[in-house]
Design a protein around this nucleic acid. Structure first.
Lengths: 148, 148
DNA sequence: CCAGATGGTCAAGCAGCTTGACTATGTTCC
DNA sequence: GGAACATAGTCAAGCTGCTTGACCATCTGG
């Protein structure tokens, strides 16, 4: 594979990732959830199972815990999450999604599914599944960070 | 395709894009080009053929022309590009890569090829080519913006 | 040749992140 | 039990990359 081939793949990958992110964001806004940024989605994903501490969230997002704390301030202020006492550690606080936070998460899933459905129409469902499997093998532990 | 499947694909896509970007950046730094950010790479790609104006660059990157102008200030200060008089428009300035800018571009291509070679080892060259084609069909005009 | 469009820059402000310092609570080891 | 250190979280200050707004120089169309 020549260098220019590699750049073509890189461009295609970045373009697809950028478009997906943008369209999920638009879909979430269209469903009435304003003031959320794409980064919030990754926080929600980490909080969803059973909540998380600020430090866990920071590690998940790859930012400092101060940045994660600010992000939590933000989503708490907007009503998507709340801070509770941590059951086993009086220093920590457990951040959990509110019902509105869950609704927003579902909206993001719907928006993502909508985009992926378009891709399935273009490529066929099997191809899209193959795409997911290959991407998963390529970067099983890729960073949850901005693409640049 | 269920919503959770769509999220799995999204996560895989973002992870792959993030990892690729990060590793190209690391490769460029390892080749001795410091102070460059991933965003610079997309500027270089637009400047490479025969230069571009600040306004063209801004459109390419999807930012304001002020932001593009600052980015040009930056790469000029670091010796990667220079501003020349525009041949047919005295208002405009043509931004062109210097030899150092070309060297940095080649370094990025090498770094990208290195990563893609790893992927070829994992999936096979044909699979990687198929990946590129499918991504290209999915988002032929995707934004050159941060993934979030 | 003049009115408006366009290329570029200067200036100010903002959002999201960083580093550094600090308090409160947990943990380890004697 | 207690001293020493580690960890969770926050406050504060600062930086960077972007934005909006204003402006001048130059091009373009009637």
């Amino acid at each position: 594979m020549q260098n220019s081939e590699a750049m073509a793949l890189s461009a295609a990958l970045l373009a697809a990732a950028g478009e997906l992110t943008q369209r999920i964001h638009e879909g979430v806004v269209a469903r009435g959830f304003e003031g959320v940024r794409p980064a919030h989605g990754f926080a929600f994903a980490r909080l969803a199972p059973g909540g998380a501490t600020v430090t866990e969230l920071a590690a998940h997002l790859g930012v400092t815990k101060q940045a994660a704390s600010q992000l939590v301030d933000d989503i708490v202020r907007r009503g998507y999450a709340e801070r509770r006492a941590h059951p086993g550690d009086a220093r920590a606080r457990l951040v959990v999604l509110t019902e509105r936070g869950w609704a927003c998460t579902r909206a993001a899933e719907e928006a993502a599914a909508e985009v992926v459905r378009e891709w399935s129409d273009l490529l066929g469902e099997g191809e899209v599944r193959a795409l997911r499997d290959r991407l998963g093998r390529i970067a099983p532990y890729g960073p949850l960070r901005p693409a640049w």
